[in-house]
């Protein structure tokens, strides 16, 4: 695994404000790095520095071995970048815009046409080719931005909130596209949709107040949740009390939460494992001993949203 993106001690100050503070990360080919953090945490600023738009106050970044400060043009040739908000020239038509980007990227003649067509195909823009971009919906605008980033089939992709403003179907399409490209490229996406991280990212970096507070796989992050390995069982309405008493007797369980479930009178009991140890077996045994057969039983992997809140709040405190 060779690192295609390497950020080293990136720091950005705006006057007295430290927006990004000593952020280092590496992304290898085949990795999709999810860049997470609350609004204003420094996600976009970090990406802008890696993309060579903002000059870091300290530190530097390398893409495919090219330093962004020493050789910005080499970096920009290898990079597909979707800036925050997917800016495009509103008065141009979709084809004119993509054709212009291809021209700037140095493609000529039939090569340029085929590249533009390929990008249009990848992002399903066929229906809006001759509309001015300003007339398009938010989802189409985002896809035009994405098409622009994919046009030259770059080795490195940095996408700032690629699915923001898309409907669920479009989100799914974009995620599929990213997953399909992932083996060949090094990708960073920023997002605050946690399900997206679980769905497509091989690694997640959480940033808060400009600092990296976690760098792990989504599964590792989920393990930090108190919900990791928690067991939820669904039982009949009359069995709720008995089951709760039986479960609360178990030493290895933390709290047991009881929820009434809708109109059908079922009760859901969630048993949180102490220290995240697997507890499914003991729970089944305990229920069997009081003669209850659960209608449903499922084990949680952990709740990323909760881990995210913990990580980013602790830093704020």
């Amino acid at each position: 695994m060779t690192a295609m993106i390497e950020a080293e001690g990136l720091e950005k100050r705006f006057g007295p404000v430290v927006a990004v503070d000593d952020v280092s990360l590496t992304v290898a080919r085949g990795e999709v790095l999810g860049f997470l953090g609350p609004n204003g945490a420094g996600k976009s600023t970090t990406m802008k520095m890696i993309a060579g738009y903002l000059t870091p106050t300290r530190g530097t970044a390398r893409l495919c071995g090219h330093d962004v400060l020493d050789d910005p043009i080499a970096v920009k040739r290898r990079l597909g970048y979707l800036p925050e908000g997917a800016p495009t020239y509103p008065d141009m038509t979709v084809t004119a815009f993509l054709d212009w980007v291809a021209a700037v990227r140095g493609f000529r003649g039939s090569d340029r046409r085929s590249r533009v067509e390929r990008a249009i195909g990848l992002t399903s823009l066929h229906d809006v080719l001759y509309y001015p971009i300003e007339a398009l919906s938010k989802g189409f605008k985002r896809r035009v931005g994405l098409a622009q980033a994919l046009l030259h089939d770059p080795e490195v992709l940095i996408l700032d909130e690629p699915t923001d403003g898309l409907d669920p179907n479009q989100k799914h399409e974009v995620r599929k596209l990213i997953t399909a490209m992932a083996p060949e490229k090094a990708i960073i996406i920023s997002t605050h949709i946690l399900e997206e991280v679980e769905a497509i990212c091989t690694r997640a970096v959480v940033i808060a107040r400009g600092r990296v507070v976690a760098d792990a796989t989504p599964a590792e992050l989920a393990k930090r949740s108190r919900w990791h390995n928690a067991v939820t069982v669904v039982v009949g309405a009359d069995q709720g009390e008995i089951a709760a008493v039986a479960l609360r007797k178990l030493e290895m369980l933390g709290t047991v939460e009881v929820d009434a479930r809708g109109a059908d009178g079922l009760i859901a009991l969630s048993a949180l494992a102490r220290d995240g140890a697997p507890v499914e077996g003991p729970v089944r045994t305990a229920l069997a001993s009081v003669g209850i057969a659960p209608r449903e039983i499922f084990i949680e992997r952990g709740r990323l949203d909760e881990v995210f809140r913990d990580l980013t709040r602790r830093e704020a405190a």
Partner: peptide
């Protein structure tokens, strides 16, 4: 204003 400056300056344009 439109943010396209970020697009322009992250294309291989000096």
């Amino acid at each position: 204003r439109a943010g396209t400056i970020e697009l322009l300056l992250t294309l291989p344009v000096t």
